[in-house]
Amino acid sequence: MPKVRRCRYRGCHAMVVMPDHYCTKHYEHEAEYLANRQRWARSRNKNYQRKYNMVIRNRNANKSSQYNFYRSRQWVGLRKNVLERDYYLCQYCKALGKVTSAKTVDHIVPIEYAPNLQAEVTNLATTCSKCHNAKTAWEQEYYGTGKDNQLKKVEKIENLKEIALLIMNY
């Protein structure tokens, strides 16, 4: 059975066999639509990808090496071990007495602040997306991590319960 989708013409609910985008009644719009898509892809592809790769992801040598670490076999193995160790449960929620499933592995002390703890299993914890977002915001304020921030000389906090209490307000 062929794959189908709805006609892109506004108000038309006819089904179209892929890869077409318009039904036979509105097929005259197909060439214009494809041309617009190609024009958009060409203009966005080079500029957008370059900006994302050079300005955001690899803005300096330190960020580039961090990004490469997250693409390494070492990280894949560490991540798998930590997820299994924590039984896919958010450790920050668990410290507060809640049970939440999680798939993200996060550094307790950020690697921007302590690069020597990058591959330490003891510095990794499983976290849910809500806690991860809150912790990232807290790290930017407390440690000074993230884009356009300056690292601060503050004490490392490694206690999960203490961090969980601090990130509750974010």
Score class of each variant (00 low, 15 high):
residue 15 M to R: 03
residue 16 V to F: 05
residue 19 P to L: 02
residue 20 D to P: 02
residue 22 Y to V: 03
residue 22 Y to C: 02
residue 23 C to Q: 01
residue 24 T to W: 00
residue 24 T to I: 13
residue 25 K to G: 00
residue 27 Y to A: 06
residue 28 E to R: 13
residue 28 E to M: 07
residue 30 E to Y: 02
residue 34 L to R: 14
residue 35 A to M: 15
residue 37 R to C: 12
residue 38 Q to I: 07
residue 38 Q to W: 01
residue 38 Q to V: 10
residue 41 A to W: 05
residue 43 S to Q: 11
residue 45 N to A: 02
residue 45 N to R: 04
residue 47 N to D: 02
residue 47 N to H: 03
residue 47 N to P: 01
residue 48 Y to M: 05
residue 49 Q to L: 09
residue 49 Q to F: 03
residue 51 K to G: 01
residue 51 K to E: 01
residue 52 Y to A: 03
residue 52 Y to M: 06
residue 53 N to I: 02
residue 54 M to G: 03
residue 54 M to H: 12
residue 55 V to E: 12
residue 56 I to D: 05
residue 57 R to Y: 01
residue 57 R to Q: 10
residue 58 N to L: 04
residue 59 R to G: 06
residue 60 N to Y: 13
residue 63 K to C: 08
residue 66 Q to H: 14
residue 67 Y to T: 13
residue 68 N to I: 14
residue 69 F to W: 10
residue 70 Y to Q: 05
residue 72 S to V: 13
residue 73 R to Q: 11
residue 75 W to H: 03
residue 78 L to S: 04
residue 82 V to S: 06
residue 84 E to K: 15
residue 85 R to H: 10
residue 85 R to S: 11
residue 85 R to C: 12
residue 86 D to A: 11
residue 86 D to S: 09
residue 90 C to M: 09
residue 90 C to Y: 03
residue 90 C to D: 12
residue 92 Y to R: 04
residue 94 K to Q: 12
residue 95 A to V: 09
residue 100 T to Q: 11
residue 100 T to A: 12
residue 101 S to I: 12
residue 101 S to E: 07
residue 102 A to S: 04
residue 104 T to R: 08
residue 104 T to Q: 06
residue 106 D to C: 07
residue 107 H to A: 11
residue 109 V to K: 01
residue 112 E to N: 07
residue 114 A to E: 07
residue 114 A to M: 11
residue 114 A to V: 10
residue 115 P to M: 10
residue 116 N to S: 10
residue 117 L to M: 09
residue 117 L to H: 00
residue 119 A to Y: 01
residue 122 T to Q: 11
residue 125 A to R: 05
residue 126 T to I: 05
